[in-house]
Each structure stands twice: as C-alpha cells, then as structure tokens.
Simulated assay, not measured.
Amino acid sequence: MTCWDIVSDYGLRSLGFGERLLPRDNFTICQQVVLIGSGMIWNIYFGLLALVSGFFLAVATAVGKAHDNPMLRKPAEWFIFVFRGSPLFIQFFFAYFTFQSLKGAYPIFTPLTSAWLGALIVLFLNTAAYSAEIFYGALMSIPKGDIEAADAYGMSGWKRFRRITFPTMLRLAWPAYTNEAIFLFHATTLVFMSGFPARSQMGDALYYASYFADKTFNPFIPYPILAGFFILLTLTVIVTFGLINKQLNRHLPQTNRAKIRLRLNLIR
C-alpha cells in the first residue's frame, strides 16, 4: 500500500469517511502522520469556532464588567471568576455529566452529549472568560485623553464605542489575545481525554497519537508527529494574528506599534 493509498483511506477517518478499521500491525510513518493529521481536523474545528464565537461574548462581558451598573457588572465578574478559577478538564467533566442528566430528562438535549457540540460550548465559555479579562484590562488602559477627545467631538454612546473605545481596546489587547488563541488550540487536546467520548474512533490528533503509542509501545514517533502538527498550527495563528495586529496599528509610527510577545501558560 502506497502512502497515497493511505491518504485516500484514512485522510478523513476522523470525520467518519474512508476505511472504518484502524491499522492493527506493521504501522508505518505515513499511517501515523495521516491519521494524526486527520485528527487535527477536530482540533482546528474546536479551536476556530470557540475562538470566533467566544470573541463576541468576551467583548460583551468585558464591557459589562467595566459598567457602573452592578446588575451588569456582577454577573460578568462571576462568569469570569468561575471559568478562570476552575480547571478546564473539570469543566469538561461536569459539563458532560450535566448534559447526560439533561438528555435523560429531555431527549432534545442529546446533541449536547456529543463532543462536536457539548465540548465546543465548554471551550466557547472558557475562552470567552479568559479573553474578557484581557479585554477588560485593555478597556481600563485606554488613555483618558482619547475619551475626552471623543467627547469634545460630540461622540457618545454607541458611536464613541464603535469608533474610539473598541478599536483602541483591540489594539491594546491583541498581543495578549494572541497568546489566548494559541493556548485555546492547545487546550482542544483535552476534549477526548475528558468526559466526552470519541464515538466510532472519530477522535482528535491526540486520540490517534495515543492509539499508536499504545499499540507500538513507542511514544517517540507519534507524539513528536503530534507536536509537529501543533507547531505548524501555532505558526499559522501567529502569522494570522500578526497581520491583524499590523492592521490594527497601521496608523501608529513603527516604533510605537505593540508587538506580539508569546508567553507560556503553564496551567489553565
């Protein structure tokens, strides 16, 4: 069997297309690269959708936390505290069993017990909480002169937020938000290691890497392959967010532009 045949058989294996049975013996490097790469489809799916949807909730939560009205401020503060104060793995665990309980009482909630929806909701809420704290810090760092200038021009309410507050907040928060995006994609490896099961062996990249490590008793091939895929994904995120950061700071002199600094998150 050529490597192209392996790609044809297993390239979309994680989505349920192609060969149903996984290789049992005589594992090749091509098989491991293709199947782990196939699993990366789920990691990208979880990370991308959670990041895009979580961005809007994060902005709304940050604005709520910065608001003077305690009816808006307190729920935002508690939301951020709960999801930043508890480990992501535990959030997956409790969410899965909560969704299972809802499924038992109301069958309409059955899709929530599947990783494609249930785990996505957890990642969405988790990244929204972390990102909201980043955006809140940026909101508090907006120079008062910018706000005073907007008031002098007669801007207030939504117009001031759209033209002054929001762009400045993004410009200040974007380097830190880039690190959150990178860690979010890394955190997707917890999905199938937590409560959410991988049905019909339709797992993510770590699921397949663990499969090969268990079968071959040699973790020094599948896990470096997995790390290589995530390094490529991280480089893609850095380049994409770097271009956006450049666009956000296009009006500033080169020496004053905020630069993206990557920081390692040791614990979530």
Score class of each variant (00 low, 15 high):
residue 257 R to T: 12
residue 6 I to H: 12
residue 104 G to N: 15
residue 228 G to R: 13
residue 203 G to R: 04
residue 191 V to R: 00
residue 48 L to Q: 08
residue 60 A to H: 08
residue 258 A to C: 12
residue 171 R to K: 10
residue 141 S to H: 04
residue 59 V to C: 04
residue 224 P to T: 14
residue 16 G to K: 07
residue 196 F to S: 11
residue 249 N to P: 12
residue 174 W to C: 09
residue 53 S to W: 01
residue 227 A to G: 10
residue 237 V to Q: 12
residue 150 A to T: 04
residue 141 S to N: 07
residue 62 A to Y: 03
residue 241 F to K: 01
residue 159 K to W: 10
residue 61 T to I: 03
residue 143 P to M: 00
residue 158 W to M: 03
residue 228 G to M: 08
residue 240 T to N: 00
residue 130 Y to T: 10
residue 3 C to R: 09
residue 2 T to V: 14
residue 214 D to S: 15
residue 170 L to C: 10
residue 225 I to N: 13
residue 26 N to P: 15
residue 153 Y to K: 00
residue 59 V to L: 05
residue 240 T to W: 14
residue 238 I to V: 09
residue 14 S to V: 06
residue 29 I to C: 02
residue 129 A to P: 06
residue 248 L to V: 05
residue 256 N to R: 15
residue 201 Q to V: 12
residue 36 I to E: 02
residue 167 P to H: 02
residue 28 T to H: 11
residue 134 I to L: 07
residue 47 G to V: 05
residue 38 S to K: 01
residue 49 L to C: 01
residue 132 A to T: 01
residue 18 G to V: 08
residue 9 D to N: 14
residue 169 M to S: 07
residue 1 M to I: 15
residue 2 T to D: 15
residue 186 H to P: 01
residue 167 P to I: 05
residue 254 Q to T: 15
residue 111 P to T: 06
residue 127 T to D: 08
residue 163 R to K: 11
residue 182 I to G: 03
residue 15 L to R: 03
residue 42 W to K: 07
residue 83 F to L: 01
residue 20 R to H: 07
residue 257 R to L: 13
residue 200 S to P: 11
residue 156 S to A: 03
residue 130 Y to M: 06
residue 255 T to H: 12
residue 255 T to L: 11
residue 63 V to P: 00
residue 28 T to Y: 10
residue 72 L to H: 07
residue 52 V to E: 05
residue 37 G to E: 10
residue 93 F to E: 02
residue 44 I to Y: 06
residue 236 T to D: 09
residue 8 S to L: 13
residue 49 L to G: 01
residue 253 P to A: 09
residue 126 N to F: 12
residue 100 Q to K: 12
residue 7 V to K: 10
residue 159 K to Q: 00
residue 20 R to F: 06
residue 81 F to H: 05
residue 173 A to I: 01
residue 79 F to H: 04
residue 235 L to I: 05
residue 167 P to C: 04
residue 177 Y to D: 01
residue 3 C to Y: 15
residue 184 L to P: 05
residue 27 F to C: 00
residue 104 G to M: 14
residue 192 F to R: 00
residue 247 Q to K: 13
residue 5 D to I: 15
residue 60 A to V: 13
residue 193 M to I: 06
residue 246 K to C: 12
residue 84 R to T: 03
residue 136 Y to M: 06
residue 189 T to D: 10
residue 173 A to H: 08
residue 39 G to I: 04
residue 148 E to G: 02
residue 159 K to R: 01
residue 125 L to Y: 04
residue 97 F to L: 08
residue 17 F to A: 12
residue 132 A to S: 03
residue 1 M to R: 15
residue 180 E to R: 09
residue 192 F to W: 13
residue 9 D to G: 13
residue 10 Y to F: 11
residue 52 V to P: 07
residue 98 T to D: 00
residue 257 R to E: 09
residue 134 I to K: 05
residue 122 V to A: 09
residue 130 Y to G: 00
residue 66 A to G: 02
residue 145 G to A: 04
residue 210 S to D: 09
residue 145 G to R: 06
residue 162 R to A: 01
residue 164 I to T: 11
residue 57 L to D: 05
residue 225 I to L: 14
residue 239 V to W: 14
residue 91 Q to N: 06
residue 69 N to Q: 07
residue 245 N to K: 12
residue 100 Q to I: 02
residue 137 G to T: 06
residue 5 D to G: 14
